[in-house]
């Protein structure tokens, strides 16, 4: 998958690139409006990440131009402003998603995948992890051809794990992914454990291996041996 990251901050850009490169993405980047404009006009990308505040112009302008030349590309706006009007304006202009700083890289990754899935209608809609198959269209999970009955939250959790295989995901990260702003003020994250436990139980009883590993009591990892 080919990505364009429009972000003026060197360090932040590097974080995103390092993280996404490990997932096997081809990452290109632009650090100002001019560069972004050139790249958007010259090449096609699967997903474009756009920071609203960039030197030389507005990310929203880039988004507008991208939409006119390449409407199929998935777009995610990265903004430090969680000001509502920005959010609304971005989504009105046709951005697929919106993420505010500071965000977690696994969260960003999950959203890139989701946006990509949505935009590649003709592409593969089934995510396969060994015996587990996740149909992102019908939101159904099957193990060895039998449907596993998951709650929406458990489905979300599994998809999140599948998007971030072999990475340690802290309880905080998972909680925020599943409940968003609601966890902001809560300190007790035990309910994450409850959900993991339930998901693990359901997967195992349907005949899957135990992929979810606890990591030092601070988080979890969806461990899938790399298939060579």
């Amino acid at each position: 998958m080919k990505l364009l990251i429009i972000e003026d901050n060197e360090e932040l850009l590097q974080n995103i690139r390092t993280y996404l490169k490990r997932e096997g993405y081809i990452c290109e980047f632009a650090q100002n409006y001019r560069e972004a404009f050139d790249k958007v006009m010259s090449y096609t990308y699967d997903v474009v990440l756009i920071d609203i505040m960039i030197p030389g112009g507005s990310g929203l302008q880039v988004l507008r131009e991208l939409r006119s030349v390449n409407p199929q590309a998935g777009t995610i706006i990265i903004s430090a402003k969680n000001a509502l009007d920005d959010k609304v304006k971005g989504l009105e202009l046709g951005a697929d998603d919106y993420i505010t700083k500071p965000f977690q890289l696994p969260e960003l990754h999950a959203r890139i995948k989701a946006v990509n899935r949505r935009n590649q209608r003709d592409g593969q809609e089934i995510l396969n992890i060994n015996e587990i198959a996740i149909d992102t269209d019908s939101m159904e999970v099957t193990i060895d051809d039998s449907i596993v009955d998951l709650t929406p939250k458990e489905y979300d959790l599994l998809l999140y794990f599948a998007s971030n295989k072999n990475r340690v995901l802290s309880k905080q990260t998972i909680a925020e992914h599943l409940w968003g702003d609601y966890v902001d003020h809560l300190t007790n994250l035990d309910f994450v454990y409850q959900h993991i436990k339930n998901l693990r139980k359901k997967l195992e009883s349907a005949g899957a291996q135990n992929y979810i590993e606890s990591v030092y009591g601070i988080g979890y990892k969806f461990k899938v041996p790399r298939q060579v």
Binding site: N9, N15, A80, P102, Q104, L105, P106, V168
Partner: peptide
């Protein structure tokens, strides 16, 4: 928010 996002990302990379 930007420096916080950077630090956050660096810490995530560190966990890897």
């Amino acid at each position: 928010q930007t420096p916080l996002a950077i630090t956050q990302g660096k810490l995530e990379l560190l966990t890897e």
